[in-house]
Amino acid sequence: MPYPVSYYMLLASLPHMPRTFDVEHVPISRLRLEQRLRMLSARDAGTVEQVQRFWLWDRQHAERTDQEVREEYDRLMTAIRNPLVRNIIAFRMDVRTITSALRRRRLGMAPPEGVGRWVDQIHRHWDHPDFRLIREHPWIPALKADMEANVPLQAERRLLQVTWNRWTRLSDDYHFSFEALLLYLARWEIVDRWTRRNEQLGCRRFETLLTEALGAHAPSHH
């Protein structure tokens, strides 16, 4: 008989998530988080690995064709059984599809093929400012305004905020369970994504200051 997983112990061993993702550091380092996740059973660890692989795929800024995205989405939805993981992936892909549709419409292009629940709705209401999705996705007008104002950082922050709010709301329903852990990891992923972005900005700022201070003697950076 396998040793039963104690979500009570695992979740109590993780530091609290901050109220917002806009913080300087992740509450727990990746290394330490991986150490704690070793308490999971093989089945749960497999599910966590699936969702972590999706986040890694989602983070890569590689150019992908619609066909590739659709194939990945179909593969994930066939492979994954956990309802919350499916929800996490489906919501993220919905956000991607809507964002892509807003960008393409702004550039005067045709509707994206996209994936997820709202593809048909977007095609049907292509000319409507929010694709008649305001009830399900009230953030669309604000994101559209960010895009029109050409403030990509604010748009990115808004998208992370939308996802963060959703996971925070959902996590109110789960305590000391596998679902609570998944939602913790989902929010950790957002904080990590944001703090890494800040690190990159910080590095660039440091290089600029260094160049200014050293002038012609500054080392070249790659």
Partner: peptide, 13 residues
């Protein structure tokens, strides 16, 4: 057991 497991987890943090 529940409370004890949570306490053991918290000891790590």
């Amino acid at each position: 057991a529940r409370a004890g497991q949570a306490a053991c987890g918290a000891l790590l943090d």
